[in-house]
């Protein structure tokens, strides 16, 4: 585990010095957006991979956060930093309200309800005055790419760390997985599935809202067709599924691969934008059929299988008595 923590800080450290060497605005922008997608993909996976509930409206939390920041800054004169906690809270509240009726039911109802919720929120933004309707909202330009680079990096890193602490290090992730595997069985072991699922849903929504808030100020223009588009959920989903559900690193790797592909695609094949949708869809479908564990899941699965094989040959099972006892954590 030490190695994992080391790798995490090494990655953050490496990223933190990028702006010192890279002055190219385009590259900075791409990396900034990558951090955002990593954040969206890992939070989507909290519900999908750990709890086993597919949230087809994750983008709604992102959009709600974006609009919160925009409205508070433009209509109420708040400063950017002050709007971010509200953006997160509001997204969390939306998750709470949407989750209460739907998380009691089978996953199918949840999937449908979250999708409908996302569309409803998009409609709401289209008809309300405060959101500027279809015209969207313009925010004061703040042209400091390096600032946004660090803010996005910080939020994505904190989100990752928080999820790692809760899902891998503490017991919350195990409880979620137990509920994913068998809800009725988990109840007999003292778990309250309704409450735990709601907690997870809120946990996944809050960072998405904050990321949306940052995005609004960064891009300086938001409208329902951009920050509330289906494509946000679609993309986060492809990243998580492609990378590997039920892990934290899988979605990160998926985000890096898919986003790099998207960037290259749009840079060189911008005339064929709709082709991107086809590729996205086909990648999801093919991953489900041929790589249900995603890239990361498949890789680690193979490594684990090989390790088990080596271990099995090296250690006599009779005396190989629980080597982990007393070890802090081996996750």
């Amino acid at each position: 585990m030490r190695r994992g923590i080391f790798a995490f800080w090494l990655f953050i450290g490496l990223m933190a010095v990028v702006p010192a060497f890279v002055q190219n605005a385009f590259v900075l922008r791409i990396v900034t957006e990558l951090f955002m997608w990593i954040g969206l993909a890992i939070t989507w996976d909290v519900m999908a991979g750990y709890a086993g509930y597919l949230n087809f409206g994750h983008g709604a939390f992102f959009g709600a956060g974006a609009y919160t920041t925009a409205i508070l800054m433009m209509r109420c004169g708040w400063t950017f930093a002050a709007t971010l906690p509200v953006a997160g809270l509001l997204a969390g509240l939306a998750a709470l309200l949407a989750g209460i009726p739907t998380l009691r039911l089978k996953g199918a109802y949840f999937a449908i309800a979250t999708w409908a919720l996302a569309l409803a929120i998009q409609q709401l933004a289209l008809v309300l005055d405060i959101t500027g309707g279809p015209d969207g909202m313009r925010l004061p330009p703040f042209l400091h790419p390096v600032f946004f680079f660090y803010v996005m990096l910080a939020v994505a890193a904190v989100t990752f760390l928080l999820l790692w602490l809760l899902l891998e290090r503490a017991s919350f992730g195990l409880k979620l997985k137990a509920i994913r595997e068998d809800e009725a069985g988990a109840m007999a072991l003292g778990l309250n599935p309704a409450r735990i699922k709601i907690q997870a849903f809120v946990l996944s929504a809050v960072p998405a809202g904050v990321l949306g808030g940052i995005y609004a100020f960064w891009i300086t223009f938001i409208d329902p067709a951009s920050v509330l588009a289906d494509i946000i959920t679609d993309q986060a989903m492809v990243m998580a599924v492609f990378g590997g559900l039920g892990t934290l690193l899988g979605p990160v790797i998926g985000a890096i691969v898919v986003f790099s592909f998207k960037t290259l695609f749009w840079a060189y094949l911008a005339d064929y934008q709709v082709l991107y949708l086809i590729i996205l869809g086909v990648v999801i479908a093919l991953t489900v059929v041929f790589l249900p564990n995603g890239i990361w899941g498949t890789l680690t699965g193979q490594i684990q299988a090989r390790n088990a094989l080596i271990k099995g040959m090296a250690i006599d099972p009779a005396q190989g008595r629980h080597p982990e006892q007393g070890a802090d954590s081996n996750d």
Binding site: G52, L54, A108, M237, V238, L275, I284, N293
Partner: peptide, 26 residues
């Protein structure tokens, strides 16, 4: 056998929907 097949089927048809939409637009 792997994961939750019902969820995977949901993801699958979702991917299908995206691909069809892209196809339609093209």
């Amino acid at each position: 056998k792997k994961g939750n097949p019902l969820l995977m089927a949901l993801v699958f048809t979702f991917g299908l929907a995206i691909a069809f939409k892209g196809l339609g637009l093209t």
